[in-house]
Simulated scan of single mutants.
Amino acid sequence: MDQRRGGRVNHTIQRELGSLIEELSDPRLSPMTSVTSVDVNRDLSMAKVHVSVLGTEQEREDTLEALRSAATRLRMELSQRIVIRKMPRLSFYSDDTMQTGADMDQLIDRVMSEDSRRFADRDGS
């Protein structure tokens, strides 16, 4: 599989999986779940699916558990939506970049707020 075709396959699976995951009714799934990337290997046997879950560590773990238990069903539904020589097995991994970014934003906001208070206290004395 050439690199351009591989990119199209990755993107197509990512897009379709995103909508399939939204349709799942597992209570363990966080509503703040998104498929951030998909990496299909050359022989189309495996797809590493990276998902981002905004929330607590427990919510991330629960969501990954729910996705892993639904992997076979998701693969079957994908095969009905995508015409591909061989539908890869899906393995789900946590992508913490969005959560890390959100945590960094909170940290920056807190530091700026503390600095503002410190300067206000200094100016007021």
Rank of each mutant, 00 (worst) to 15 (best):
L67Y: 01
M112N: 13
L107G: 08
T63M: 06
E22C: 07
R42S: 13
E57I: 08
D109Q: 11
G18T: 07
I108K: 02
R42D: 14
M87G: 00
A47D: 05
S25F: 05
A66T: 07
G18H: 00
G101L: 05
L17N: 02
H50S: 14
D62S: 12
D103S: 11
E22Y: 08
R68F: 00
D2V: 01
L29F: 07
D96G: 12
R8E: 10
A47W: 01
R122H: 13
V83L: 13
N10D: 14
V53S: 01
F92R: 05
A71H: 02
Q106P: 01
V38T: 06
D96Q: 11
R89A: 13
V9Q: 05
Q14D: 03
R4Y: 09
A71E: 03
I108H: 04
L67P: 01
S116Y: 10
R118T: 13
M46W: 15
G101M: 08
Q99M: 10
R75M: 03
V83F: 11
D109I: 10
D109S: 14
I82F: 09
R73S: 12
T97W: 03
A47M: 04
S91P: 09
L90N: 03
Q58W: 05
A66Q: 05
P27L: 08
R8T: 04
S113M: 10
T63H: 05
D123C: 02
E23L: 15
H11T: 08
K48I: 02
N10T: 01
A47I: 06
L24C: 05
L44V: 06
L29A: 03
S69R: 11
F119P: 00
V49S: 01
P27Q: 11
S125H: 13
R85A: 14
E22D: 13
L24F: 07
E61N: 13
G18R: 02
T100K: 15
T12S: 09
I13L: 08
R81F: 05
V111N: 00
Q99V: 07
L20Q: 04
R73P: 00
E59D: 05
E114I: 08
K48R: 13
D43A: 02
E77K: 14
F92K: 02
S125T: 11
D105W: 01
R75G: 01
M112E: 15
D95F: 03
G18M: 01
R68P: 02
N41P: 10
S45M: 03
D39W: 05
M46A: 07
R122F: 14
R5S: 04
R110V: 10
H11F: 12
K48A: 14
Q99C: 00
L107C: 06
T33P: 00
T36G: 02
S69T: 11
R117A: 12
Y93R: 09
L67Q: 03
Q58K: 12
T63L: 01
P27E: 15
S30A: 06
R117Q: 14
E65V: 06
T33I: 00
T72F: 12
T56F: 04
D109F: 06
V83Q: 13
E77Q: 14
S25M: 11
R68W: 04
E114P: 00
E77F: 08
F119M: 15
S116F: 09
R28N: 07
D109R: 12
R122T: 13
I82K: 06
